[in-house]
Design a protein around this nucleic acid. Structure first.
Lengths: 209, 209
DNA sequence: TGTACATCAGTGAACGCGCGTTCACTGATGTAC
DNA sequence: TGTACATCAGTGAACGCGCGTTCACTGATGTAC
């Protein structure tokens, strides 16, 4: 509930164009996705497309911004949900990871792909500001997860010597890698399983066996 | 030593075309890489390119096969090196992971990218047999790593309940994710650090803190 | 309530360039006798 | 050792289609008075 935005006709079309484009980009790459096919599926003309986006790079930028905003919202919501279930920082983070894994496992056709990862593998196609956005996205996630790990480490001294930035990064790592694994082996369950491996690691480090 | 193959003139050109193409594909995607730019850098004509490859998809296939073969050779060599340093299955695997991390850290400009991961994010561009090759690649790595984990588990009962397939997959995961992280944040040291996180996890599971 | 004007959300036609692919041909090198 | 032929590793020119982008225009909706 909430979050049901009222969109004008133009905004609806714009969102729809990005939905179609994102799906295509995640399966064929950005250069492999033509404006022609996007508008064919959306049912408008090419000039209609250019009414919404200055050029193709502008579409790339808008899609990425939307993707990053959305990811942020999802994580915030899961963190909040976890915090409501436990006040202990470690337990809350473990709950968060379980919720995250479940959510990834519940996607009907498996995870469609991470737009950031996709962009990183073709970043020379984009203007500087778009490339900087993928960098910034990863930096934000590191900071966000690291803050959680710091709070945990205050109450549960780590059993081994470990760099918390690396540990924070590992969640991005395992998620990106898990998505690739799931897509490649066509098994949607692999992504949540990878997240649960990360969860097991966190638990071993702070709580032991 | 060894491995210095004698290549005919044609084979040399073919290898050079694939070198140039691979570098371009990892930065711009497959559809974003034109035959024109490859031959411009290689210094031959377009018909020369089609003497070596039936069509563009054939180039994609040859590149991927070469990449998979090469990865296999590298892992075999590292496993062999590790086995020479320790007979114990756990210690040998931990040594292998350290060697692997060091190797990834020693790449002069950081890891250029995993061709398999790149293909997975644009697999609709390729024919069925190429897509199957990425699937098979991941399956082979899982089997290879899983065999090592099985041998470890015989001597060192795991401290927690863990699925060894998932744990085997996690190395691919963390490597693919680490490469993306390194590329995105322009920090070549992140990839080896992620591999070392995985190593810490394996150690905790089988040897404890 | 009616009229004038502005903005929104597009249409339609045309552009030139770059793309992957084909085809007929060629000089250099290798092999058979 | 010389000649005939085959294979290797390409060249050069042309192809048609699809691509991203531009430009002048338009009907529907919103706003001011």
């Amino acid at each position: 509930m909430a979050n049901v935005q009222v969109l004008s006709k133009g905004e609806q079309t714009r969102e729809r164009l990005m939905d179609i484009a994102q799906d295509a980009v995640l399966n064929k790459g950005f250069a492999g996705t033509s404006i022609d096919e996007i508008i064919a599926e959306a049912g408008i003309t090419k000039s209609g497309f250019f009414y919404h986006f200055r050029d193709k790079n502008d579409l790339a930028k808008a899609m990425l911004q939307r993707y990053l905003d959305n990811e942020w919202r999802v994580f915030e919501q899961l963190f909040q949900q976890a915090d409501e279930l436990s006040e202990d920082p470690l337990h809350s983070f473990l709950i968060f990871l379980k919720l995250f894994a479940d959510m990834m496992g519940d996607l009907p056709n498996g995870h469609p792909g991470c737009l950031v990862a996709s962009y990183v593998y073709q970043d020379f196609l984009f203007s500087r500001d778009v490339r900087d956005m993928t960098t910034e996205g990863h930096r934000i996630w590191r900071t966000r997860f690291r803050a959680r790990l710091d709070r945990i480490a205050e109450h549960y001294p780590a059993k081994i010597d470990v760099n918390l930035d690396d540990m924070a990064d590992m969640l991005s790592s395992v998620a990106d890698g898990g998505i690739i694994l799931s897509k490649s082996l066509r098994d949607p369950s692999l992504l949540p399983k990878q997240i649960m491996q990360y969860r097991a690691y966190v638990k071993l480090v702070f709580a032991g066996a």
